[in-house]
Computed example of a mutant assay.
Amino acid sequence: MDATSLRRAIARTRLAPVAAFPKRLVSVARHDAKVLRTSARWLVTSREHHNYTYDLTKLSRQHLAWFVSVVCDVPVKQVRGYLAEVESDEPLRRHIEQTTASAARRGLADRHVRYARRIGWYAIVRATRPAHVVETGVDKGLGSCVLASALLRNADEGHPGRLTALDINPEAGYLVRDGRWSEVVDLVIGDSIASIGALDRPVDLFLHDSDHSREHERREFEAVEPKLAPGGILLTDNVTTTNVLAEHAERTGRRFLAYRETPAEHWYRGDGIGVAW
């Protein structure tokens, strides 16, 4: 009996789990060793303690382009152009690097600029040309910079818009307090629910990225619902954790779609984008 026939014979016996154990052990060991190497490298080279930044894998970036194409009903080639546009925006990259280097909280931020799924936010703003974007949860302001950059590009093409960025932390948003990106950003410090209630103009695009508890996310979508402009789009940065936006979409008669990113060379599993439109 040759080796192949022997393996097949053993696979049909009670010895199969025992015989397969060494191969299974090697597979697990290789996977865990790669994770440990990636984690150790990150611990040494990164300063971030939350809101991790990273690049997307090539495949994940391709899937993101198709995701935006479907949601915004624009050709995928056009979306790829938007993704390349923000990734090659050198003034934006230099602004983030230089502002981070001089910030009081620079000890908890990486100077190397990586946008991850935020390039999808950018493409959605470029494709839909909203007059008013509202973002809850600003932190350093990396996502706000990306959104502001898209709005500035739209304005150059005759479609001006503004970003209302809401955060409860008075130190939030240092990346959008100066420079040309600040010209289209209204940074509001306070409770997001109260701030949404105080909005005085319709919302074309709303992004939840603040307190990621299920209850708070639900309250934000309920609060912004009467503020939405016709055809307003809802985004969540919490789509891998809760089903809140999908449930809200079903209640309000919208379509829903989710994208899950895959980070390149990072221990974090990544997050995603949920859209209701």
Results as ranks from 00 to 15, higher is better:
R201M: 11
V35E: 06
H208E: 15
Y259C: 07
N154G: 01
D156G: 14
A16H: 09
T38L: 07
L56M: 15
L245F: 10
V18H: 04
H63N: 15
E85Y: 08
V224R: 05
V86E: 11
V244E: 08
V86H: 10
S102I: 07
Y259G: 05
D32P: 02
V203F: 06
R219T: 01
M1T: 04
T236N: 11
L199P: 03
S144W: 02
T262E: 15
R118Y: 11
Y52Q: 02
T262K: 14
A101P: 00
I10G: 06
Y82M: 08
N154T: 00
R12M: 08
R180K: 11
F221P: 01
H212E: 05
L163G: 01
L142E: 09
A229C: 06
H159E: 03
A150K: 03
Y174C: 12
R162F: 00
D211V: 09
H31Q: 15
H208F: 11
L43K: 03
S46R: 13
R8P: 00
N51H: 08
R129L: 13
A109G: 00
R251N: 10
S192M: 04
D110F: 14
L6Q: 06
H63D: 13
A11H: 10
H132A: 08
V146G: 06
E183Y: 03
R111H: 10
G197V: 08
S102P: 00
E217M: 09
F67R: 13
A194T: 14
T136L: 06
H266F: 10
R219C: 00
S46V: 00
E157I: 00
I124N: 02
S5M: 04
D178G: 05
V86G: 06
T236E: 11
A16R: 09
R162S: 10
G143V: 04
W42T: 06
V79Y: 05
V79N: 03
Y122H: 14
S102K: 11
R255I: 07
D191I: 07
L151P: 04
V138I: 13
D139L: 13
A116H: 11
T4G: 04
S27T: 10
L59C: 02
V76P: 02
A33C: 05
R162Q: 09
T4E: 08
A127E: 06
S144R: 01
K77F: 02
A33H: 02
N154F: 12
F206P: 02
I273A: 06
D110Y: 14
A150C: 03
A20R: 12
R118G: 05
G231F: 02
D237K: 06
V239P: 06
K23Y: 13
P230Y: 02
S27F: 03
V113K: 11
D139T: 08
F206E: 03
D156H: 12
